[in-house]
Design a protein around this nucleic acid. Sequence first.
DNA 1: CTGTTAGCGCCTTCAA
DNA 2: TTGAAGGCGCTAACAG
Lengths: 339, 339
Amino acid sequence: MRKKQVTIKDIARESGFSIASVSRALNGTEGISPENRKKILEVCEHFAYTPNGLARSLVKRLTQTLGIIMPDIMSPFYSELMVKASDAAHKRGYRVLLCNSFRELKSEEQYLKLLVENQVEGILIFPVGKMSEASIMKYIRNVPIVSLNEMTEQSGIPYVCADEECAGRIATEHLIFKGCRNLMFVGFKPERLAHRYRAASFLKTAREKHIPARVYECGTDFRTSFERGYDHFRQFLISGEAMPDGIVAASDDTANGIVKACKEYGKRIPKDFSLIGFDNISAELPYIELTTVAVSHEVQMETAVNLLLEMIGGSHLTGHQSRIKLEPKLVERCSCKGA
Amino acid sequence: MRKKQVTIKDIARESGFSIASVSRALNGTEGISPENRKKILEVCEHFAYTPNGLARSLVKRLTQTLGIIMPDIMSPFYSELMVKASDAAHKRGYRVLLCNSFRELKSEEQYLKLLVENQVEGILIFPVGKMSEASIMKYIRNVPIVSLNEMTEQSGIPYVCADEECAGRIATEHLIFKGCRNLMFVGFKPERLAHRYRAASFLKTAREKHIPARVYECGTDFRTSFERGYDHFRQFLISGEAMPDGIVAASDDTANGIVKACKEYGKRIPKDFSLIGFDNISAELPYIELTTVAVSHEVQMETAVNLLLEMIGGSHLTGHQSRIKLEPKLVERCSCKGA
DNA sequence: CTGTTAGCGCCTTCAA
DNA sequence: TTGAAGGCGCTAACAG
């Protein structure tokens, strides 16, 4: 029932030229007279001919395509990363296949397989978690892969991520600079490496400055950081414990959950306490302008794509060159009290 | 420099079987003894062999892949549609290529071309605008395409969308039912077909019920509906004109922009006026629980994928079967005053 | 400048 | 159950 597709052979027959000439006309290759090229292209147009990319890639052994796997396309953070990564790839003449692992290991592995089978030349992945390392190791033999989160040094998996220890310090110092004297870290999830760095650095920095600080720990977990932030902070408010005057949220998404809880319980930011997050997500929230610490998404993705392309090009990279931590910066908005 | 990829030929040689047997072992096809299959698969494992999907699709003339083109992956509305569409496709054994046209016609057309060249079996597209019709017409000769927004009947392009006229009526009636007696429509953008339906139906319904109503028109436009809503409503507030007691926003995203303006200018919802939107976007906004009118995203995507698969299957569909308007429903939350 | 030919990696008859 | 051979649609030498 399917319409048989028009092939280069049909065009050759209809135009009276050889398939080689048709190929040359289509690809703008040397070796064909302008007038004949024009004739051939007209025939193509007339038959609505579209070259078969599979066949072309098969013979050229090049797809000019990169794969990108993110945990959650619906989060503004990841979707922005996707966009920036796509842009960076396009700029360098690569196309991109977008995949949404939905934070599921199984799905992540399936996509890795799919991408490899589809002959992408390289893969950018924001791993679901620690467990992702195994799948990545499996496919890294076939194709260059760059992670967007830190990986163990022993795995040797290249990555480009933010220096989260540094980020934690910047956030904490900012709150202290703004005059906070009683700090709390909310939304901690031990499975997330970034959280561990941020929290550890938070405690260390506070200790150095002799400021009381603690990580609020709360067993519950949720699908999104937003929900976790909301729930944890609600728990805290209900508990009746003394309020801190400065809160470091595990991420911006978490911070937004905290904001939601505040709204319900009549707390005002930054009046009742200062709040700072991480990641600089660009959600257009009407409610609050969150101060945050992050690396430029664009810089991170450009760096990651560059690294990937170097690997594709076959450069032999040292561990130092292939494990990159970018320095985060403070993005000051309105969720912290004036100094 | 690139590692030469392991092919089926290598596996054949290493395992001592023919290419045909290896192929059978890999695909679970009949005609090979279990023990030999096992042996072959072990060799595959050992050499980290991954079949070349391009070659496979080329000979089978089937890719089991659908393409999806959306205008803005960063909008929660479209990204949710993408997710639902992917789910629907996966359920039916299809894979999916996600594309982000970024509301640019050029980019949209490039992706159409890319998808066709990559031999997707069908395409789901949320067109950038009226102008998209031309590109779609161009490629619909090659592959089945279903639009997620209404298209002109004469174009014959199949679509699955919400009945926006009905949506406009529901929203307006709800505000009136809640006691509003002075209505305004904010964020109108004439290029958007859905807006035209919503606004026309808004005016018609209000007229029928003898309620004063008008569409706030304001030349300015922006990249996102959010920004447009924010700007238009800010303009309105500055103008000092009399406040309506019920506002229909052109979309939920617009409504969120309105909310932002309200925050800046000290207006409270639903105290100062009731607000209703369209689309039921699932952004986790901490600030407001927006009442809205929409079709189920899941139903819409399931319907669209079904339609697409029928077309792929070669069914001959009537205009009635291929131009589907789904009935929207009221999703009541907290942005409208109690009756 | 043009056409012929040999594959790219794989699946699928068709014989054995 | 197995293997040889042809071909999917295209590009890239190589001849002419």
